[in-house]
Nucleic acid binder design. Structure first.
Lengths: 140, 140
DNA sequence: CTGGATCCTAGGCGATACTG
DNA sequence: CAGTATCGCCTAGGATCCAG
């Protein structure tokens, strides 16, 4: 997709945008929650677990803006609002779920790599200098 | 992968972690930059474009910790450090590139949806209050 | 050239309170 | 029930200076 010799940052701007969506804290969780059909505001909230009403509203709006989710209002009392994945939204599930599968398949490899890295960090101080060797105390 | 009736948040924690990686500002850009072979610190920097040395170092470290990138130091003067995708890193490219392709394929749909949404937002002010109607500039 | 330590700001996100 | 408005924390991430 990218020729290879040009900045490569510009060549994948649209990809960057989508990756941000995928990586943000709640979007994909909501998309997955809606995979089996429409849900109401509070149903999504319950499904997502710890999301705040503020973030749910914002995320839903933004998902709607991107055309991934549709919003249907039924002006009764109390009001009823149903959210549903659009065709575009459903199509996004495929690559996203592939990514999810990758995560599960390689979970142990990642865990192992992290453990090994952390172990090395504790053992090799800074290149021979005798250092107390705090495991990178709670600073940053 | 998730039974469907449990919180669903906990069932995909590892996926969430990976999604965050994919979604963060520089990780995938670096992974893609390394797709054709090892690069030195400043070569990656040049390829990425606007990244700060701080973020490059941090991202690289964290990629290394996750076992996606390997770091090889050649202690010459000046020092030479090569970064290369590990097998795990390469395997991640597949789902990530799939996501990238999705982004390109549906770019126009998303653009259209956003334009339509913004247009609607401009028409329906806020329940009658005359609003100037700034289009809420969406940059990055 | 590689990369650590510091400082500083924008904004993501949660908590809470209020409206229709 | 659905949604908005306000506040305040906290972290991502850029700029800069220093060191090996």
């Amino acid at each position: 997709m990218s020729p290879g010799h040009l900045p490569l940052v510009e060549s994948c701007k649209p990809a960057k945008a989508v990756m941000s969506r995928v990586g943000d804290k709640w979007s994909m969780l909501i998309v997955i929650a809606l995979r089996d059909g429409p849900l109401r505001f509070n149903e999504i909230k319950r499904a997502a677990g710890a999301i705040s009403q503020r973030m749910l509203t914002l995320t839903l709006r933004s998902l709607e803006r991107d055309g991934l989710v549709s919003r249907k209002v039924t002006p009764t009392t109390p009001p009823r609002v149903d959210y549903e994945l659009t065709t575009l939204g459903h199509s996004l599930r495929e690559p996203v779920e592939a990514l999810g599968r990758w995560a599960f398949e390689h979970q142990t490899s990642i865990d192992a790599a992290q453990a090994a890295f952390d172990a090395r960090a504790g053992i090799e101080p800074i290149t021979g200098l005798a250092d107390g060797g705090a495991v990178k105390g709670r600073a940053a």
